[in-house]
Simulated assay, not measured.
Amino acid sequence: MLSRKRKTVTGKLIVERPPAIKPAKARRIIRRFHLLINKRRIICNKINIKLLEADESANSRRISEKLRLDGAQSFYDEGWNTQNPSPEYEAQMLRVQRLDDHNQLLRILGYIMSEIHQRGGLKNYQLASSMGQDRNRGGDSSKILINWFKTIRTSGRQYRALEIGSLSAENAISTSGIFDPVTRIDLNSNDPAKILRQDFMKRPLPSSEAEKFDLISCSLVLNFVPTPQLRGAMLLRFQHFLRLDVEKTYVFLVLPLPCVSNSRYMSTELLCEIMECLGYKQSHTHESSKIIYMLFQRSIGSKAQKKHVAGGFSKKVLIRDKANMNNFSIAL
């Protein structure tokens, strides 16, 4: 019998196997990368550097140009060349919102950029994201969506889907045969030929019904949006991309379970109230040990209520408070 691990006479594998990352490590890598991106955004806002959400090359050029104009390259280089991890820089990075020393901000920016580009931060993030949805490892959240959709779809009809934060063109949404076409976008696409590198909040609004969708999938994206107001703005923006020429459209939300089960300001019930205010009704939900999956339905004629305009969900409200709780919230 031939060995499964077939090798050449030099001992190398004929087919290179992709590197494996355990799920727990993949989650740590993804959380770390989003922390770096968030802290970089805060620093750049403070020192007047306008970043692009989906163009790391352009961001590097803009930072370099700012350093050249300010004659501040030396401070940035100090941070870039600091050994990582640095307890001092890590502590300062976590409280960078309260830091006003311009030169120290540049050092921390150099420290962050070094990890993103020199120490494999971006590369590891893309690999971890891709491995996270590997069908062989049970990481494809859209499998649950497809099981639900099989019970509610109209036979013979093709549905159009927009997948925000897409990690794979081979997941269940793309291979089920229910959705065609599937438009995939992600801020840091690991497959630009199949997944468009794009920020949903900057995606042009549809000019016709033909450019709208039956389903918007937003899996493990909302929790990485940096502020409650921006999360609310994302939910509000969904309505512009859903079709009006069909009876029902859908939004598939996937969040870490602690966002609703262990937050001082959010619960499953409150999230459903916010979605109902925006014109959606929850049709399906499922909780695993770490993730909550929710499908919301929007019927033709449904409109966002005026409650959020009047301030009904404009501020976070404390609904419980215990040690070790998080502060996840959504503001409209």
Rank of each mutant, 00 (worst) to 15 (best):
L2V: 11
T8A: 13
K12C: 14
L13M: 14
R17H: 13
A20M: 15
I21H: 14
A24C: 10
R27C: 11
L35F: 02
I37K: 07
N38E: 01
C44A: 10
K50W: 09
A58E: 02
N59H: 01
I63A: 02
S64I: 04
L69N: 09
D70F: 05
G71T: 03
Q73P: 08
Q73K: 15
E78Y: 11
G79K: 11
G79Y: 08
N84C: 13
S86K: 07
H102D: 15
Q104K: 14
I108R: 02
I108A: 02
L109K: 01
G121K: 07
L122R: 07
A128P: 07
M131Q: 14
R137Y: 15
N147Q: 09
F149L: 04
I152N: 00
G156Q: 03
G156K: 04
L162G: 03
S166D: 01
A169M: 09
G177E: 02
S189R: 02
D191P: 15
K194G: 14
D199M: 04
L205A: 09
S207E: 10
S208T: 13
E209L: 11
A210F: 12
E211Y: 08
L215G: 05
S217P: 00
S217E: 01
L220M: 07
N223D: 02
P226M: 00
L230P: 05
L230A: 05
R231T: 00
G232L: 06
L236G: 14
E247R: 13
V251A: 09
P256H: 02
L257T: 02
S261M: 00
S261N: 05
R264L: 03
S267N: 10
S283W: 05
K290F: 10
G301V: 12
S302W: 04
G312N: 04
L318D: 03
I319W: 04
K322R: 03
K322W: 06
A323Q: 06
S329G: 08
A331W: 10
L332M: 12
